[in-house]
Design a protein around this nucleic acid. Structure first.
Lengths: 165, 165
DNA sequence: GAAGTTACGTTATAATATAACATTATGTCG
DNA sequence: CGACATAATGTTATATTATAACGTAACTTC
C-alpha cells in the first residue's frame, strides 16, 4: 500500500507512531511537572497503554493489559479507574461517552473542548480541535454556563467507505 | 417536585405539562401508524413514563416505575431495554450518553441531530434543534459519512446560576 | 521521624446492559 | 378458518462497567 490513501483526518493520517507516543508522554510529564502533580508509575502505565493503542479502550481492556504486564499481582478495577480519573481531570486523556471508553488526548493538558469522529467500521477515532463555536455561543446566549461539551460523531471514515465499495 | 418553575430554556420553559405529554404521545401514535409499526402497550408505557418525567431516566428507573405500576409481575430488564431500543430507533426518545439515561424527544420521529444542554444542578435537559451545521460540514469535508451525532453540553442553567448566588 | 496527606491495594457490591431461549400475540395466506 | 411465519414479550442467567468502603504504603513537611 504505497500511497497510503490520504487517510481522512487530523489524528489519523499516517504518522510515526513510536515518536508520537514518546512526544505525548513527554508532554504529559511536562504538564504534571508544571502543575506539581505526580505522574506515578501506575498513572504513566495507564497512559502508556492508551498512547500505544491510540484507539479507545474500555477500562477493563486497560485492566487486562495491566494484568498481562504484571507478573502475578491481580490488579483490581479501582486502580484503573483512579488512574483514569486523574488523567481525565488533567486533560491527558478523554472519555468517549458513547463507547464507555477512553482515549489519549492529542493536545495534552489543553482542556480544549474536544470533538470526536468515530468510525464504526475501523473503530478509529479522530480528535478534532474545537471547530465549533456556534454551539457554545448558543448555550451562552440563553445564559447556560458551559462546563463540558461532549461531541461525538459516529459514522464511516473515508478509508472505510472506499474499502466497503 | 416543584421543579416546574425552576426551568430555564427552550425545552423547559414553563409549559402545560399535561398537554405536552398528550400531544407527544399522540404524535408518537401518528408516527407509528404512518410507519406501520406497533406502539404496543409496553412501548407506550415506557414512552409515557419518559414523557411524564420530561427528564432523563435510567433504564432501571423506568424498570422500577413499571414494577410499581404492575401489580405482582416482576418485570425484567430486557423488557425495558427492548422498548427503549424501539423508541430510540423510531426517534421517539433519545439516549443521553453521558448519563446512561433516556429522555423523550421533543420532535418525535424527526430523527434530527439533537443536541442537549444538561444542567448538573437541577438535572434538567434542554433539547436544542440542530442549531449547528459547522460540525457536520467539517466532517463532510474530510469525507467522513456521518451516522449519528452526540452533542451533550453539561453546565449550569440560567435559573440555577441565579439560585446559587 | 512523627503527623498529615496522597496514592495505591483489596474486597465487595452497585449499576448498566445483553445473550439465549421459551412463550404468547399478531399477521397472512392457503 | 387454521396452519404457518413473524414479531413482541417474558424469563433466566450472566456480562460489562463502575464505585463504596476501608486498609496499607509512599511521599511531604516540619
Amino acid at each position: 500500500m504505497s500511497r497510503e490513501n490520504k487517510s481522512s483526518n487530523i489524528a489519523f493520517r499516517k504518522h510515526d507512531h513510536r515518536r508520537c507516543q514518546r512526544q505525548l508522554l513527554s508532554a504529559a510529564r511536562q504538564v504534571c511537572e508544571t502543575r506539581k502533580l505526580r505522574l506515578t508509575s501506575r498513572r504513566r502505565q495507564v497512559l502508556e497503554i492508551l498512547l500505544a493503542s491510540h484507539q479507545p479502550l474500555g477500562a477493563y481492556d486497560i485492566l487486562a493489559e495491566l494484568n498481562r504486564a504484571a507478573d502475578a499481582e491481580r490488579i483490581a478495577p479501582p486502580i484503573v479507574y483512579r488512574a483514569l480519573e486523574f488523567l481525565l481531570v488533567e486533560g491527558l486523556i478523554h472519555r468517549i461517552e458513547s463507547r464507555n471508553a477512553f482515549i489519549s488526548c492529542v493536545h495534552p493538558g489543553h482542556q480544549c473542548a474536544a470533538q470526536f469522529l468515530i468510525c464504526r467500521d475501523c473503530e478509529q477515532v479522530a480528535e478534532i480541535e474545537n471547530g465549533d463555536s456556534g454551539l457554545l455561543a448558543q448555550a451562552d446566549n440563553i445564559g447556560f454556563a458551559v462546563d463540558h461539551a461532549v461531541v461525538e460523531i459516529t459514522g464511516v471514515c473515508a478509508q472505510c467507505q472506499k474499502h466497503g465499495e
